[in-house]
Design a protein around this nucleic acid. Structure first.
Lengths: 234, 234
DNA sequence: TGGGTCATTATGTCTAGACATAATATGAAG
DNA sequence: CTTCATATTATGTCTAGACATAATGACCCA
């Protein structure tokens, strides 16, 4: 068996990426079949296939059986937005962080199960940074009943205690109500960024949170790199 | 050579996903080595390796040479946000779409190169939906000089003409100025969602756009599914 | 002309074995 | 007791060949 070259798959991937980025192979173009690419790069077809698989994952190409592999059409712009734990976000800015719980109470949710409701404020450098209204389903996270949310922000606590989740975020611009404006030390009606997040474990709801940020103190940053799938943010 | 089972790689991936989701394998846990998994599932090590590779891509596990494969720690919440072409977005809602260019002019940018500046309004069902201020670098997109942006929105045109890009988005809540409020048929100071996007081709800037939406008529939806990398949105 | 069947083709997936590489653990030397 | 060299180990990547599968297009028949 011949010795393998250092990094054929990577070389193939980068070569094809380059041809697409440069415009040499335009969206919709059919690229050579795997056999031919294998011959051209002097490697096994499985290696070409792996490289193409990565390009599919990156959204650069599409493969159709029998038809061949085609340069994908430019994506509707999408971006990976990271929505970090507020404590971490603020620590990363080098500011002091503080959480203040305003109300913690148990109640029944629509299904009759126990729900923990927590309201509070996040402070950055002793200035109010975000309001938070959260509910936690105790059926999914029984340990939450014993946690001390007056000291530790529930988001941070949940990150450390929930195995794995899927989530849906809704980002919206809203005007602060009088009460919200007062809590955020801004004017009534001020533009605020509202982030709502529903979190599930499997298909059962775990927590719902609404965070309200002063529009002049917070923004979301999202990056998108076609071809690499790399993600950064905030 | 033995006949291959229908979908070993997928079975392996889903089994491991399940153990992670259920909490059986907690973050930081070392999972069995590839050889052992291969034996357990009755397949070749390469197949296990492929399955693990997909789990890495999904962010569920981390692999370290010699050390082994470990369940990844839950991600700081991230989500894939899709920022669609406005014409498509509005068409998908079943509303009529219209673009109105307000100002198109050439000017020199900071580097002395030619820049096209375009301002306009997007309408959904004949109501103003978004303001757009855009600049296009003619050095990167010379064809833009001949395009008729009075008829076709520049975002739509660019999607069809630019080979591939990376982008950075900034989402922020801002208060509408008097002029903006008037153009959007809302009140002065109304909360608006501002989306800024810088787009590059390779490392050269292509276009910058600022879109301003009425906060009560638009929101961004972003989904995140740990383990699958699936993306949906809006 | 319309429609159904079938061979062809290109991707999809897997196997068994080989060698590369990096990080850890071990043991020897100072 | 510390430090450096070495062996071990688990992942990383590749090869060559095999069979599966889906979609296309050509062919044949009504």
């Amino acid at each position: 068996m011949t010795r393998a070259a250092p990094n054929p798959a990577r070389r193939i991937r980068e070569d094809i990426e380059g041809r697409i980025h440069s415009g040499e192979w335009k969206p919709g173009t059919r690229i050579p079949i795997e056999q031919e690419l294998a011959a051209r790069y002097g490697c096994a077809r499985a290696t070409v296939s792996k490289a193409l698989g990565e390009l599919v994952a990156a959204g650069l190409v599409e493969r159709r059986r029998k038809a061949g592999t085609f340069v994908a059409h430019p994506p509707v712009h999408s971006a990976v937005m990271t929505v970090p734990d507020l404590a971490e976000l603020i620590a990363a800015r080098g500011e002091s962080y503080r959480w203040e719980a305003r109300a913690i109470l148990r109640r029944k949710n629509a299904g009759g199960a126990d729900t923990l409701q927590i309201d509070g404020i996040h402070f950055a450098a002793d200035e109010p940074f975000a309001l938070e209204n959260r509910t936690i389903e105790l059926a999914e996270v029984p340990a939450a009943a014993e946690a001390n949310f007056a000291a530790e922000a529930p988001g941070t606590w949940l990150l450390a205690h929930i195995p794995w989740t899927s989530a849906r975020h809704i980002v919206r611009a809203v005007a602060a109500t009088r009460a919200e404006a007062a809590a955020l030390a801004t004017g009534s009606g001020a533009a605020c960024l509202q982030l709502e997040r529903d979190t599930w474990r499997g298909d059962r709801p775990v927590t719902h949170v609404r965070q309200l940020f002063r529009g002049d103190r917070f923004d979301l940053v999202a990056e998108f790199q076609a071809g690499t799938g790399k993600r950064e943010g905030n």
